[in-house]
């Protein structure tokens, strides 16, 4: 094992051990450290650190997130591994409080891939043992023969079953999702690292929430709503989901959202916003429990901003970066919502 010393901006210093070749972010998180990260897959740049002593190997030299590494010695901890000998890192931020379940690496088998549209599907990983997570968190999945891990959000209410359910979107340069969609990986062994992410519903949350999801960003919201239903959250705090999709033809999971609305007795409301077309009355009639509208999700949320300002709900925001950024700008600038009240995940 390689000893890694980490110093944060405030001068706090701690140590963890990493195996040769192990991703530094994974090793640190698994050791219980509050290291900074967001995507954990090399895109966002949030896990930047400076190597002050020792050497690291880069696992993805062209990672998009490396654009933030502009000075000598700067690395992304999610895409770097200890190369041997003692290693010292310096963080540009403070250690975060760890309020989420411990991260760890587990093995499991892929199963139950189900395709909803040309680019959206769900699948499960049957684990060797259960893993604790919060509703709204995600995990990294690595498959043999597929370079690098890929992030997927858990869609179910956390349970003691040794299984995790995920939503997958076929897009971008990732190599794992296309193989899921071609059913080439059914039954294959995979490694799961997690749980990750802070855009989660916590046990102590006792306020209404507004969940704002674009496309596959709805994955974590499914988990949050299911968990909220199970704990009777909506009886005390009526809450809402705004789900942005492009078109009726490309829609998915509306039957499951309808069921959530029914189970809540209408105390949980869902508005589906189509960006590219107006909802057809015949389509709306298929899902009488849902509300439909036209426009981008941030515009739909803007129309209800006065109630957000008055009720001070928890705001969950997840989806592609342009959608998350537009929604955050609207909430922060127009709604005067403190960023501390918003839990967001950008899906690169």
């Amino acid at each position: 094992m390689i000893e890694v010393t980490v110093e944060d901006r405030a001068g706090g210093r701690t140590r963890f051990a990493a195996r040769p070749g192990e991703r530094l972010l994974h090793a640190g998180l698994a050791a219980g450290l509050g290291l900074p990260y967001e995507c954990a897959t090399g895109t966002c740049g949030s896990c930047r650190a400076t190597v002050t002593e020792g050497d690291v190997g880069s696992l993805w030299a062209d990672a998009p997130g490396r654009r933030v590494c502009r000075r000598p010695g700067e690395i992304l901890m999610c895409q770097s591994a200890a190369a041997g000998g003692a290693l010292s890192l310096k963080l540009p931020t403070a250690f975060r409080d760890r309020r989420e379940p411990e991260c760890r690496s587990l093995s499991g088998r892929l199963s139950s891939f189900r395709r909803f549209t040309a680019e959206i599907g769900t699948f499960s990983v049957e684990l060797d043992e259960p893993v604790e997570h919060l509703p709204g968190q995600f995990a990294l999945i690595s498959a043999p023969g597929v370079e690098g891990p890929r992030a997927y959000s858990m869609t179910g209410n956390p349970s003691t079953e040794p299984r995790l359910d995920f939503l997958a979107r076929l897009s971008g340069p990732g190599k794992l999702t296309p193989r899921l969609f071609s059913n080439a990986l059914e039954g294959r062994e995979v490694e799961v690292f997690g749980p990750l992410g802070r855009a989660a519903l916590r046990p102590e949350d006792d306020r209404p929430f507004v969940a704002i999801a674009g496309g596959s960003g709805v994955a974590g919201m499914l988990s949050i709503v299911e968990a909220a239903l199970a704990r009777g959250h909506f009886d005390r705090h009526p809450s809402r989901l705004v789900f942005g999709l492009r078109s009726m033809e490309g829609s998915y999971l509306l039957d499951r959202l309808s069921e959530f609305v029914r189970l809540s007795g209408g105390l949980f409301r869902t508005t589906v916003a189509f960006s590219d077309e107006a909802p057809d009355p015949e389509f709306e009639a298929i899902f009488p429990d849902l509300e439909f509208t036209t426009g981008y999700v941030h515009d739909v949320v803007r129309s209800g901003l006065s109630s957000i300002s008055a009720d001070r709900p928890i705001c969950f925001v997840a989806g592609p970066p342009p959608m998350v950024d537009a929604t955050m700008r609207m909430l922060v600038v127009e709604g005067k919502v403190s960023p501390a009240e918003i839990r967001f995940d950008r899906f690169g």
Binding site: T93, D325, V332, P339, A340
Partner: peptide, 30 residues
């Protein structure tokens, strides 16, 4: 970023400051 009154907001992680003093607000750590 966004400037609203005297509050400047970074567009990436939404750190905020009072630009008259540089004081960090919200989730800003520095």
């Amino acid at each position: 970023g966004m400037l609203d009154g005297s509050v400047l907001t970074c567009p990436l992680h939404f750190w905020q400051w009072d630009v008259t003093t540089g004081e960090p607000l919200g989730v800003a750590e520095l």
